[in-house]
Each structure stands twice: as structure tokens, then as C-alpha cells.
Computed example of a mutant assay.
Amino acid sequence: MIHIDAQTMFEVAPRFSGENAANQAAIIAAAGEVLQVTLQQYDINTRLRIAHFLGQTCHESAGFRTTEEFASGDAYEGRTDLGNTQPGDGRRYKGRGLLQLTGRANYRELGGVLGVDLEGRPELAAQPALSLRIACEYWKKRNINKPCDQDDLMTVTRLINGGLNGLEDRRLYTNNARRALARIEGVQLSGAQTASDKRILHRGSKGEDVAELQTLLRKLDFAVAIDGDFGAGTEVAVTRFQSENQLDADGIVGAQTWAALLAAKVPAARA
């Protein structure tokens, strides 16, 4: 089994700043918490299947920074092929989720499958964990695992998009996912599961695992408070540690950063 989580999603996605970064972090944290178990339930459990799933959902959600279509939805008004038969259905049933669920009929159908009243409460489809399940149901319905097994990006894209829109970005994110999964498998094979099992931490995280992180940083001569609150000072220290250890200096403590921290040697003056 390949152990995937929020860190895997971060490694696939592009970086943002400001509000976009905050939105991305919230979506990834919520979806990442249930990513492993959800994908396993839908047999999205091999390197190729996971890589294509993450690459496609990353593109469709604008880099995991939104679970709701940016457009108003007016373009879908009166689309009887989508089941939009009532005034206001275009906006009400606009695209939502990691793979954009669109139209009253599709909300009704997927809601019935999942036991959730998506037709009556369409905004629920934007919740990250639920949108992950919706995406998996769509994946299953279209039998997208099959072209994944052939590593057929173009067929996968056509089944998701109906054409080849955004093919280069989809290829980029799928390749990012390949590298992330290769890294994870390498960590697992080297026996570093204790690091990969730890919670992903980033600015705003709180708790005992943040205090553990801060304790490790203090031992390595980083001047941070051990208060269990991942604030600006902790983020600066993490970013500096990552830079000094040839890691992506993004301030996010995932499996690679945890492994490097746990393996780091305490300076002689502090030992």
C-alpha cells in the first residue's frame, strides 16, 4: 500500500500566496485527511492510478485551491441536458468539487449514490472530503482506472473533460504526482514510515505534534518557542531548515521534512 496524504497533494500542486494559498491549504488539509482510505475504497491504489487521479483533480480544482467553479453558472441556465429545468438552476447547480459536478440531474444522481441530499443542498458538493468521494464516484462510473493502467493520459483526460483542454497542465501535475509517489515508496522501503505517518504541519497548525516539531528545531539551534502553535517564527525556522537541507523551502512539514528533522544531528554545542 502506498501511504498518501495531504503532503502528497501539496507536492503535486503549484504554489500560491495570500488568499489562494490559504484556500489551498484548507482544501488539502481536509481532503488529505481522508485521501488514503477514500481512494482505497475505489481501487485507486496503484502508482499509475493515484498519479492520474491527483493530476486530474489538481487541474480541475485550479491547483487544489477551489472546490467551486469560478464562473457564476449562468452558462448552464436552461440546460435541460443537465437537468436544469427550474429558474436559477444554472447558478444553483454550478460546477463544484475536485472534479466539477454540474447540473441538477448529476447532483441528484450522485447524491442518491452517496446518500446525501445534493439536490436539496448543492453547496455540500464543495466540501473537500465529500468532493473527493464525488470525484471517486465519477471515476468509477467512467471506469477511468482502465486507461490509467495503460498510462494513457489522453484517454483519461477525454473521460474527465470531454476533450483535451488543459492537457499540458494535466501532464505536469500527473508527473509531479509520479515523483511524489516515487519519493513515498522510497521512504517506505528505507524504513522511515514513522516520519511519513506524522501529521502534515503548516502555519496555523496547533497541538502536541507542533510542540514536538518546535522541540526538534530548538535542539538544532533554531530560536523558536515551544508553545504548540505553528506561527510565523516556526514557519521561518522550518523554511530555513528545509533550505539548508536541500528540501523544498515551502514551510510545510511533510514526510520528507519530518524524516530530515528526525535524522538531523544535534550541533556539538547542544549535544
Rank of each mutant, 00 (worst) to 15 (best):
Q7S: 03
V253P: 11
G162P: 06
G88H: 12
R121P: 00
L217N: 09
A264N: 09
Q242T: 04
K140P: 03
V266A: 10
L172Q: 15
R121G: 02
L201V: 10
C136Y: 01
Q24C: 06
F16I: 02
F53P: 10
L181G: 14
A232Y: 07
A30M: 02
C58W: 03
A192L: 14
I184L: 10
E208W: 03
K140L: 14
T67W: 01
V224L: 08
L189W: 13
L189F: 12
K146E: 14
R96D: 08
D169Q: 15
E77W: 10
E123Y: 01
Q127Y: 00
Q100P: 01
A62L: 09
L82E: 12
V253G: 10
I44W: 10
S190M: 10
Q246F: 15
G207W: 11
D117V: 05
L98G: 12
L130K: 07
P147M: 06
A51V: 02
A62E: 09
K206D: 06
L181Y: 13
G228F: 05
W139Q: 14
T46D: 08
V113E: 03
Q36D: 13
L48Y: 11
F53W: 05
R15V: 11
G115H: 07
L201C: 10
S243M: 10
A105R: 11
T155M: 15
G204D: 14
L82N: 08
